[in-house]
Design a protein around this nucleic acid. Structure first.
Lengths: 238, 238
DNA sequence: TCAAAAGTGTTCGATATACACCCATGC
DNA sequence: GCATGGGTGTATATCGAACACTTTTGA
C-alpha cells in the first residue's frame, strides 16, 4: 500500500468575463484586506466544502461575489501542478486565509459571464472586487495568469457551441454594433461589419425593437433583444 | 476558519480508445483479481502521488497499462460529485486497494488513443485488461459509465481540432476504407464514401503507398500512411 | 455641410451534399 | 460471370470573404 498518494485540498477559481467600452473585462478580487493595490488582485475562488461538487462550489463563489444565483458557468480545466502553490507568499496567504499546512492545492477552473452593468452585491468575504480590462491584467498569485490565458481560448469554443452566451455579456437591449465589437474582442481580430450583419439577420432569436439610440451625434442605431426562451427551443449558431 | 473544507483524494481515470472491426473499443481493466467476470471491469485509473501533476498521473497509468510512453492524451473533465464514491461496494474496494477512510474521491478524466493491434505489456498492477467494444460496455463502478459517455462527445471535438489523432487509432498502414469507417464510428452516422475521398485527397500528409491489400476477394485497396512530421509543421483539418 | 457611425448588396471562390458508374479481384 | 468492395466525377447549393456606397443624425 502506497503511502504517498495525495491527500489534498481542492479549490475552484472563476474567470468571470464582462464587456464594456468594446473591451473584455475580468472580475478580479482583492486578495488581502490590508494591502490595497492593484498588484494584490486574484481570480475569485474558494476551497470546496466536503459535501459540495465543484460546480456547486463555483456557483457559491459567484453568488458570494455578485449576488447572482445560477450564473452561466462552464468548467474548463483542472490545474494540478505540484508547484502551483509553492510560492512562499502564496503559501502564507493560504495559511492565513484557510488553515495551516495546506501542502498541496489543486484547482478546477471555471468560465463565467456577467452583464458588466449589473449591480454586484458582494457579500462579506470579498472586500473589494473590480472589473479589470483584459489589457491591464496585473500579475496574479498562483497560476491565475495562466488560467486566465487558457480561458480565452475556451470562451471561443464555448461561443461556437452556444451563441446564447454572447448575449450574457451584453445588456438586455443592445445594438448590432455592440455585438460586433464583442465578437471582435473575443476573437481579437477585425470582423467585416457587412458580413457580420448578414450573419445576424437569419438569427430569429435576435429581435429588433422599435427603440433607437438617443442623443448620439450620428445616425441612431436600432436596439435589439435576444429571445432566450425561443432560442432554447431551437439552437442556432453564428 | 471553516473546518469543513474538503481534504480529499484525487484520481485520474483514462478512457482509452481503440479501433478494430469498424468499431470503437475502450480499454477496460479488471477491478478485482479474485472476481473474474465482465461485470467486474472499470476504466483504468489511479490516485495521484503527492509530487505528481494530474497529466503525469494519467501518463503513468497508461504506461503501467500498456507499456507505452508518452501516449496522446487529453484532460477533459473533473468529476467531483460528493456521492460518486458512496456506493458501499466501491468504498470497500477503495479501502482494500488504497487505504481506509477515503471518504471522498474526486477524479480527473482523460481521453487517450491507442493502436489496438499494439502488443500491450501490462505491468504488475493490472491483472487483466480487455478491449471492449463500445456497444458492449458493462455497468462499471463509480461514475465510469458517465465518464465514458462524456468522452464520446469529447473525442469528436478533439478530432475536429486535430485530425492527426484519427491516425493514432489506425495501424501505420491503413486503407481509406478504414479511415472512413473510423469516422463513421466516431460520429455514429453514415458518411458518403465518395465525398469522403474528396476530403482526403487534399491532405498532403496522408500519403499513398505502392503497397496494396492481398488475398481479398475483391479489388485490393491501396495502403496509405500518415506523415506525422510533415503534419506537425502545417496543421490540416478534415 | 460636415463628421461619424448605421445600414445595405453583389460577386466570387471554396466547401458541402447528393448522386451513379466503372474497376479489380477471388470464387 | 458474378459478387464484393475499391475508386472516380459531376452538378448544385450553401457559406464565407472581399469589397463601396448611401443614410441618418447632431453639431
Amino acid at each position: 500500500m502506497k503511502s504517498n498518494f495525495i491527500h489534498t485540498y481542492v479549490s475552484v477559481d472563476c474567470v468571470v468575463f464582462g464587456f464594456e467600452n468594446n473591451q473584455l473585462h475580468i472580475l478580479l478580487v482583492q486578495r488581502d484586506a490590508n494591502k490595497i493595490d492593484s498588484n494584490n488582485m486574484k481570480l475569485p475562488g474558494s476551497l470546496i466544502y466536503d459535501d459540495e461538487d465543484v460546480d456547486d462550489a463555483a456557483q457559491r463563489v459567484l453568488l458570494e461575489l455578485t449576488g447572482i444565483k445560477r450564473m452561466k458557468l462552464k468548467q474548463f480545466h483542472c490545474f494540478a501542478s505540484p508547484d502551483r502553490a509553492k510560492n512562499p507568499e502564496d503559501m502564507k496567504w493560504l495559511d492565513q486565509t484557510y488553515q495551516p499546512n495546506i501542502n498541496r492545492l489543486i484547482t478546477v477552473a471555471y468560465l463565467s459571464l456577467c452583464k458588466i452593468d449589473r449591480k454586484l452585491t458582494n457579500v462579506s468575504k470579498y472586500r473589494s472586487s473590480k472589473w479589470c480590462p483584459l489589457s491591464e491584467i496585473p500579475k496574479m498569485p498562483f497560476d491565475h495568469n495562466r488560467i486566465l490565458k487558457e480561458s480565452l481560448t475556451e470562451i471561443r469554443k464555448w461561443i461556437e457551441m452556444d451563441v446564447s452566451i454572447a448575449f450574457e455579456l451584453l445588456p438586455n437591449k443592445f445594438t448590432i454594433s455592440q455585438l460586433h465589437h464583442l465578437y471582435e474582442a473575443i476573437y481579437n481580430r477585425k470582423i467585416d461589419i457587412r458580413n457580420f450583419h448578414k450573419k445576424i439577420v437569419p438569427l430569429n432569436d435576435v429581435v429588433p425593437l422599435d427603440e433607437k439610440q438617443e442623443g448620439v451625434s450620428h445616425r441612431a442605431a436600432r436596439y435589439y433583444k435576444f429571445d432566450k426562451h425561443s432560442y432554447n427551443k431551437r439552437k442556432m449558431t453564428i
